[in-house]
């Protein structure tokens, strides 16, 4: 454990192309961009499917399919073929391949939870809204979406944390991000470095979880029940 503290104290690990700030920035940028891409694709599809109560089998099984795909294989194939392993600005080596892989990994939790959230909105409430003469768009925007919001945010949380965690694997395929600290530790047989890198990843993941729990409370339209 002392070795880990020494690692954090060593100023060499905080500077340069492979210093914590640069890698943390890459990691963060990758996560945010990948989740944004996945959201741009996933939300409209899931909202439409959920609103129409259609394609449930696909929407729900997407998560299981996602779990079955070995990310190491996907990333290797991508960086070896279509997307190449070149530098992509702030995203680093194999930036594009990593970005696409991570976006694909963020898709299942977003689609599945958004779909489930919409389908689980009380059918009576939706019926009542239609009965009041609301248009389909208004039903979706003013009734279904607010009621589904907490679950949608929880799906987003899952996507963000999962992508953040998975992005470490990019380093295995010579990609960017905090995984480089971990792989460097393995390469040099430095257990302390391996643990230090993992701790940074886990700590930020925890902070993200906490942030999202707060967000989930904020978007919940139901009044806080007082006892």
């Amino acid at each position: 454990m002392n070795g880990v503290l020494d690692w954090f104290r060593d100023s060499e690990h905080w500077h340069g192309d492979y210093g914590v700030p640069v890698l943390l920035g890459q990691h963060f940028l990758l996560t945010v961009t990948a989740v944004l891409i996945a959201s741009a694709v996933g939300f409209p599809v899931a909202l439409w499917l959920g609103h129409r109560h259609r394609g449930g089998l696909l929407a729900i099984n997407l998560t299981n399919i996602g779990r079955a795909v070995p990310i190491v294989a996907m990333l290797s194939l991508f960086s070896l073929s279509v997307f190449g392993s070149g530098y992509l600005g702030p995203y680093g080596r194999s930036g594009l391949a990593t970005l696409v892989t991570l976006a694909l990994f963020a898709l299942p939790p977003i689609v599945t939870s958004t779909y489930t959230a919409l389908v689980e909105v009380d059918a009576d409430v939706v019926e009542a809204a239609r009965g009041m003469g609301m248009s389909e768009v208004a039903v979706l925007r003013r009734v279904e979406l607010p009621l589904a919001a907490p679950l949608i945010v929880s799906g987003l949380r899952l996507a963000v944390v999962q992508v953040w965690a998975t992005a470490t694997i990019a380093a295995l395929v010579a990609g960017p991000g905090l995984g480089n600290i971990i792989t460097r530790g393995y390469a040099n047989n430095q257990t302390a470095e391996v643990v230090a890198g993992s701790l940074i990843v886990a700590l930020v993941a925890l902070l993200m979880e906490i942030g999202f729990v707060g967000l989930q409370r904020i978007v919940d339209p139901r009044p806080v029940t007082s006892h």
Binding site: T168, Y186, S198, V201
Partner: peptide, 12 residues
């Protein structure tokens, strides 16, 4: 929620 690479590392 611990990433696989990190979980292995923390177990090492």
């Amino acid at each position: 929620t611990i990433p696989s690479l990190a979980l292995f590392s923390l177990l090492v």
